[in-house]
Design a protein around this nucleic acid. Structure first.
Lengths: 372, 372
DNA sequence: TATGTCGGCACAATCGATTGTGTAAAGTAA
DNA sequence: TTACTTTACACAATCGATTGTGCCGACATA
C-alpha cells in the first residue's frame, strides 16, 4: 500500500528525508521541527540550532506539496499566454519569472494557442494546482470572460497584462500605446517632417487604435491637419505596408515621414523607400513600433518604440503580489500603463545631434551568444 | 485553526468542492467517489454515473496537491534554462510546453541566468515541488555536475537539451551541429563556390567546434584542401565577422563563399560584402546558422540553418516521458541528435532552380501580429 | 442446503507539513 | 512562599486524495 520507506526500490535511489525523520532522530515531536524551521517563538534557541544543524546535515528539503496542501496556498504563480514565441511574450515571461522567483514564487506556464477553450482549460488546471495567483494575457478568440469569474469566486488574485479585459474593475498592466504613437510622431516632427504618413493596423484592436490616436494627438498639437490620405490601413504585413507607402509616394504631395504602427510595416516602408531611390532619413524618415530584434540590423537601423516587455512582467508580478498580500481584503482594482520608450535610430535621426538611442538593444545581449 | 469550511471569509468567495462534499451528498464513502472518478473496476456502473453527474454539477476539480502528495508524484515537469530570451530558448520552451500539456503534464520554468548557483537552487526547488521529471539546459558557468547527482539519487527522470553534460550515461537531445556545418558547406559547393571561408566561433564550445568540423568534412569530400587562411575565429559578433571577411577579401585569392557559424556573423559578412561592392550571391555566397528572425528581412535574405527548436523541446519531452514511464526500471541512457534543416535563401541561391526554402519562416507567423 | 466466488462498497491508514490547544517546568512578582 | 506569567515543547486534528484490506449480499456450483 504505502511505498516502503527507507528501502531502495531499485538500485541506489533514495527517498528524501521528512520532518518525521528529523523528529525521530532528535527525539522530539514534528511540531518542534516544523516550528524550529519556521523560526517560531515558542522554540528555544538551543533547540532551533540543533534542528537547523540536523536539517543541514541530512540536506532536508521541505515537501512543498504537503505544505501547500495544509496551508491551502502554494508558492506557485500561474501564467496563461497565447504562445511563447516571437519577441514580446518570451520577454514578458522572462520579467515575470525573474520578479516571481525574487519573491520566492515559481511559475507554471500555460499556452492558450489563441484558443478560448484552451484558455479555459488552462485556468482549470491552474486552479486545481492551487496556485497563489494567476497572470493572463488573453487569447485573440476570447470575447466571453465568464471563465474568469470562477477564478474570482475562489478569491484568487488575478492580473491581466497586455491583452486585457477592458474595464476598471480588473487589475491590469498595459503599455500606453497612445503615448507611444504620440512620442513617435512628435519625434518625427522634431526632425523636420511636415507630412507624416501613418501605416495603421486593424482599428478593432485597441493597440492600433490607440497608436493612431497618439499620432493624431501629436499632429494636432503641432497644428497640422488630420489627413486621411496619409493614413494607410492594413494588417501590418511587410508587403502591404510597402504597397501603402508606394501609393502615397505617387501622390502630388508625398509624405516626408512615416510612423508605422509595427516594425514589420516600418521595414516594408524602408524597403519601398529604397526601391524608390529615396534616402532614409534625409528624404523620408521612418519609425516603427515594438523594437523587434531586426530593427537594429537593417540599413539604416529603424527607430522604434520599446514596449518594456520585462518591466511589464515585473509590474504585473508586483501587482499580483500586492493582491496576494491583501489576502482577500478589499482591494481597489488598478490599471497600470507603462510609458513606452522611444529608441531613436538612423532611420529617423536627421541631425547629428539627435538624441542617441539608449542602450536597450535587444540583440546586443545575444550577439555573442547567437548559438544560445 | 483550520480554515472554516463552507463559510465565505469575506465577500462572495467560494471554497472549492472536495471529494468529501460529493461523498456526503451521495451518502457514500470517499473511496467510492475516488474510485468512481478514476474508473476503478470495483465500482458499479450505476454508481459511477451518479458520481460523474454530481461532480459535473458541482464543477468538481480534484486538488492536484493532495493527489500528488499521496501518490508521491505530481503532474509537473521542471525546466531549467539559462534564460527565456532571444530566439532559441523560448522556442524550445514552446515545444516543451506543447508536448507536455498534450501528455497531461504542466511545466514549471526556472532561469539560471547562466549562474551555477542559481541552477543548483532551481534544482532544489523543483525537487521540493515534487516534479515528475526535469529538463535542463546547462548554464555557461556549470563545470561541476554534482548537483545533478541529487536528482539522480532521487530516481528522478532527467533529460538535458542543447547544452548538455557530455557522456553516454546521460539522456540528452541536441542538434547535430556537425551535420549542420556539413550541409551548409555542401550547399555552397553545389552553388559553385570553390573557395569557401568559414567564420568560426570559439572552439572551446562544442557547437562551434562541430560546425567547423562539418565544414571541413564537406571540403574534404569535395576534394578541396583545408586552408586555415580561410578560417577566421571570433566570438561571432557582427563587427568582428565583418572585419574577418574584409581581411580575407584583400588577399590575392579571395573567397567566393562564406559559411558563418552564426547568423550575426553572416550578417556582418553580408554588410561587408556590400561595402566592398560585391554582389551577393553572384560574387560571394553567404550562409549563416540559427535561423534568427532577422535573416528573412535582410537584402538579400540570408541562407541559414534552422535548429529545430520546437522539435528539440518535443524530443526532450518524449524522452523524459519514456523515463517517467520506465518508473525506475533500468533504462539505457540515450542521446538524440536532431537533423538540422538547411533553409536556402537568396544570399546563396545562385541558380533560379535552386531548391527554395521550405516554409519555416519564423517571422511569418508573427508578421501580422507584430504587436503580439 | 452448504460452500465458493465475485461484484460493490466502506474502513482506515497514509502522504508530509501545519497549527490550536494543552501542559509541564522555569522564571517573575508580590 | 504563593500565584501568575512565560517558556518550551507535545498532542492530535487537519488539508484532500489514494489504496490495501475487510465485509456483506447475490449468485453460481456441487
Amino acid at each position: 500500500m504505502a511505498p516502503r520507506k527507507k528501502q531502495a526500490p531499485d538500485l541506489n535511489t533514495t527517498t528524501p528525508v521528512s520532518m518525521a525523520d528529523l523528529a525521530r532522530e532528535l527525539g522530539v515531536s514534528m511540531t518542534t521541527i516544523s516550528r524550529a524551521l519556521s523560526d517560531h517563538h515558542s522554540i528555544g534557541p538551543a533547540m532551533k540550532q540543533k534542528v537547523l544543524k540536523l536539517a543541514k546535515k541530512y540536506n532536508y528539503q521541505p515537501n512543498r506539496l504537503a505544505s501547500a496542501l495544509r496551508k491551502g496556498k502554494s508558492q506557485l504563480l500561474g501564467i496563461v499566454v497565447p504562445y511563447i514565441e516571437g519577441r514580446f511574450f518570451p520577454s514578458v515571461v522572462h520579467g515575470i519569472e525573474t520578479a516571481a522567483s525574487k519573491a520566492g514564487y515559481n511559475v507554471i506556464i500555460c499556452q492558450s494557442n489563441e484558443d478560448v477553450a484552451q484558455e479555459r482549460r488552462n485556468l482549470d488546471i491552474l486552479l486545481s494546482a492551487q496556485v497563489a495567483g494567476i497572470l493572463v494575457s488573453l487569447s485573440r478568440t476570447t470575447h466571453d470572460f465568464r471563465h474568469f469569474e470562477k477564478v474570482r469566486s475562489r478569491g484568487l488574485p488575478l492580473v491581466f497584462f497586455d491583452r486585457i479585459v477592458e474595464g476598471d474593475n480588473v487589475n491590469a498592466v498595459v503599455l500606453d500605446d497612445q503615448e507611444g504613437g504620440y512620442v513617435s510622431t512628435r519625434h518625427l516632427l522634431q526632425q523636420g517632417c511636415r507630412r507624416i504618413a501613418h501605416l495603421a493596423g486593424p482599428q478593432h484592436l485597441n493597440i492600433y487604435k490607440n497608436r493612431r490616436q497618439g499620432y493624431l494627438d501629436a499632429l494636432r498639437e503641432a497644428g497640422l491637419p488630420e489627413d486621411e490620405s496619409l493614413i494607410h490601413y492594413s494588417d501590418m504585413a511587410q508587403g502591404q505596408a510597402a504597397e501603402g507607402l508606394r501609393q502615397m509616394l505617387t501622390s502630388a504631395n508625398p509624405p516626408d515621414g512615416v510612423f508605422a504602427a509595427g516594425d514589420y510595416a516600418a521595414l516594408g516602408a524602408l524597403q519601398e523607400a529604397h526601391r524608390q531611390g529615396l534616402r532614409v532619413p534625409e528624404d523620408i524618415a521612418i519609425s516603427g513600433f515594438s523594437n523587434e530584434t531586426f530593427t537594429t540590423v537593417t540599413q539604416p537601423p529603424i527607430t522604434t518604440i520599446d514596449q518594456r516587455c520585462e518591466e511589464m512582467g515585473q509590474a504585473a508580478v508586483r501587482l499580483l503580489l500586492e493582491l496576494i498580500d491583501a489576502d482577500g481584503r478589499p482591494f481597489a482594482p488598478r490599471q497600470v500603463a507603462l510609458r513606452p520608450e522611444l529608441l531613436v535610430r538612423n532611420s529617423s535621426a536627421r541631425t547629428e545631434t539627435a538624441p542617441t538611442s539608449p542602450v536597450r538593444d535587444p540583440a546586443a545581449k545575444f550577439m555573442e551568444a547567437s548559438a544560445q
